Structure formats: structure tokens, C-alpha cells
Amino acid sequence: MFTWDTGAGLVPLDYTSAILDVGDPSGHEQAGLAADMASYMPTRDAWVKLREYATTQSIEIDTVVVPDAWADAAAQAKPGQLPPGAIAYTVDGIRHRDGVWNDTAETLSVPVAFTLFMACPLDGDPCYLLRLSQLDNPLR
């Protein structure tokens, strides 16, 4: 389960940096991955506002599968476009958000889905993250 907590003394950049640390070591996809992460995280100003509500959010993962469309996508890639060992994993789960509104504890749980585009080099080096799909617009 992945959790972010507005009251933990961390800011969105702390969470984004942790994800970028497992990103493409060549740097080719880092700017794109940073943009992907920015679309997942609240802005710094929104984060400050969410602190007032003691907001936490987590994702409970139900399934992780290689999407059926991945084979077609990989076949359509131009030579050299994908790094060796490139793969996609679609994650389906439940996003849980908790906080306090007008002194009342509030909880929201909604389905969520996204796709991780990764590379697992054939030479045994660690896998790394290339990009993330748009939230709730995964590859199927």
C-alpha cells in the first residue's frame, strides 16, 4: 500500500523524489516521469490546504497485470524506442482518503487504475520506472 500524509511533515516533492529515484537511470524519461508524478500529486498550495483537514491517502492494490494491449504497443514501437526488458503493468485498486471536515472524520474510497511502464534489463540490473499513465486511464 502506498500512502501520503499531509501531516507527516513531508511535501509533494518528497514523494515525487522517491519515485524519481527508481526512474530511468539514463535520464531520458525523467522529465516525463516528473510530469506524470505532478499530475498525481496535489500542488504545494493544495497540500498546505489539505493539512488543515489532516488528509491522508492510500492505495490498496487489488491486481497488477500485464495488459493485453501491451503486446500490440510493444510491436508497434520503432526500433530502439523501448529499452531492453520494457514492460507495462496495469494496477487496479481502491484509493482511500481520510481527513477531518468541520470536526467530523470523513472517509472516501473509490476505485483507481493506472499503468506503470517499466524496464527490467536482461543483464540482471534492477528494474526501473519509465512513465505512468494518466490516472484512471490505464492500458488495458
Score class of each variant (00 low, 15 high):
Phe2Ile: 07
Phe2His: 04
Thr3Gln: 12
Thr3Pro: 04
Thr3Tyr: 07
Trp4Ile: 15
Asp5His: 00
Gly7Val: 01
Gly7Met: 12
Gly9Cys: 13
Leu10Val: 10
Pro12Gly: 04
Asp14Glu: 05
Tyr15Asp: 03
Tyr15Glu: 11
Thr16Gln: 10
Thr16Cys: 15
Thr16Ser: 08
Ser17Met: 10
Ser17Cys: 10
Ala18Lys: 14
Ala18Val: 15
Ile19Pro: 01
Ile19Leu: 14
Leu20Pro: 08
Leu20Ala: 11
Asp21Trp: 03
Val22Lys: 11
Gly23Asp: 08
Gly23Ala: 00
Asp24Thr: 09
Pro25Ile: 06
Pro25Cys: 08
Pro25Trp: 01
Ser26His: 12
Ser26Arg: 12
Ser26Thr: 15
Ser26Val: 14
Gly27Ser: 14
Gly27Trp: 15
His28Val: 10
His28Ala: 15
Glu29Met: 10
Glu29Val: 04
Gln30Val: 08
Ala31Gly: 12
Gly32Asn: 11
Gly32Pro: 05
Ala34Glu: 11
Ala35Met: 05
Ala35Lys: 00
Asp36Val: 00
Met37Gln: 09
Met37Leu: 11
Tyr40Ile: 03
Met41Gly: 09
Met41Thr: 03
Pro42Leu: 10
Thr43Asp: 14
Arg44Pro: 08
Arg44Asn: 07
Arg44Thr: 06
Asp45Leu: 13
Trp47Glu: 05
Val48Ser: 09
Lys49Phe: 01
Leu50Phe: 06
Tyr53Pro: 01
Ala54Pro: 02
Thr55Leu: 02
Gln57Met: 12
Ser58Ile: 03
Ser58Lys: 08
Ser58Trp: 00
Ser58Asn: 04
Ser58Arg: 11
Glu60Ser: 12
Ile61Pro: 02
Asp62Phe: 14
Thr63Asn: 13
Pro67Ala: 15
Pro67Thr: 00
Ala69Ser: 08
Ala69Ile: 11
Ala69Tyr: 00
Ala71Asp: 06
Asp72Phe: 06
Asp72Leu: 13
Ala73Met: 11
Ala74Cys: 02
Ala75Pro: 02
Ala75Phe: 05
Gln76Val: 02
Pro79Arg: 08
Gly85Gln: 04
Ala86Arg: 01
Ile87Trp: 02
Ala88Cys: 07
Thr90Val: 12
Val91Gln: 01
Asp92Trp: 13
Gly93Pro: 15
Gly93Thr: 09
His96Val: 11
His96Ser: 10
His96Trp: 02
His96Lys: 09
Arg97Lys: 13
Arg97Phe: 09
Asp98Ser: 12
Val100His: 05
Thr104Ala: 02
Glu106Val: 06
Glu106Ile: 00
Ser109Arg: 11
Val110Ser: 13
Val112Asp: 08
Ala113Phe: 13
Phe114Tyr: 03
Leu116Thr: 09
Ala119Gln: 01
Cys120Tyr: 05
Leu122Asp: 13
Gly124His: 10
Asp125Pro: 03
Pro126Gln: 07
Cys127Trp: 06
Tyr128His: 05
Leu129Thr: 07
Leu130Glu: 00
Arg131Asp: 08
Leu132Lys: 02
Leu132Thr: 04
Ser133Lys: 14
Ser133Leu: 03
Gln134Ser: 09
Gln134Asn: 10
Leu135Cys: 07
Asp136Ser: 02
Asp136Trp: 04
Asn137Arg: 13
Asn137Lys: 14
Leu139Met: 15
Arg140Thr: 07
Arg140Phe: 11
Arg140Ser: 10
